[in-house]
């Protein structure tokens, strides 16, 4: 089966995170047969669709163009993704604020687990992701589905260039009576 990427765009071009997802999808599809398809949702998709056709590795571009999809609200986009998801083995999202809003909605409706923030693909069912204070101390977790035949949707994040100090580390140290007393 093919792999579906849900593309994020500003109605002019695809963003960098989506291009990373395309790379990840190409790696996943090496273990499958069916190629990589890119889904675009929005209103007035002419320019983006034309640009998407030239992205290396994308075999087919699906466009769902409707006025109510203009702002890319997760509730609306998830419905559109679900309408085509049944013919794909994997659904990939860019790990941006936009993708993070939609991916869990799709996964929950498909009754399948989601793998967030994938940084490497080992095979079609095995992924590496950072967890537990991701950037300052990331153990890599490899996850594989033991039950789902359709395993979706891993999100791929752009390769980190600059390591940000996690925001909870910037908190002032607080005395925690609650923790101490319980």
């Amino acid at each position: 089966m093919a792999v579906l990427i849900v593309g994020e765009h500003d109605h002019q071009g695809l963003n960098a995170a989506t291009l990373c997802a395309v790379q990840a999808a190409a790696q996943v599809s090496m273990y499958l047969d069916g190629g990589v398809h890119l889904l675009l949702t929005g209103s007035g998709l002419g320019d983006v669709a034309a640009a998407a056709l030239h992205v290396n590795g994308v075999g087919k571009v699906l466009c769902i163009d409707a006025p109510h999809l203009q702002y890319g609200l997760p509730e609306e986009v998830a419905v559109q993704v679900l309408s085509v998801a049944s013919s794909y083995s994997h659904v990939l999202f860019p790990a941006t604020a936009w993708g993070k809003g939609i991916a869990p909605r799709v996964a929950a409706r498909l009754n399948t687990s989601q793998v967030s923030e994938v940084i490497a693909v080992q095979d079609a069912r095995t992924y590496v992701r950072p967890s537990t204070r991701a950037t300052c101390w990331p153990p890599c977790i490899t996850a594989t589905p033991s039950r789902c035949s359709r395993f979706a949707p891993p999100a791929s994040r752009p390769p980190p260039r600059k390591v940000a100090w996690p925001r909870w580390r910037r908190w002032p140290l607080r005395r925690r009576w609650a923790a101490a007393a319980s």
Binding site: S113, I141, T142, S146
Partner: peptide
Amino acid sequence: SGLSVLRVA
């Protein structure tokens, strides 16, 4: 769960 953690490194 449909996921299992194979290894933590």
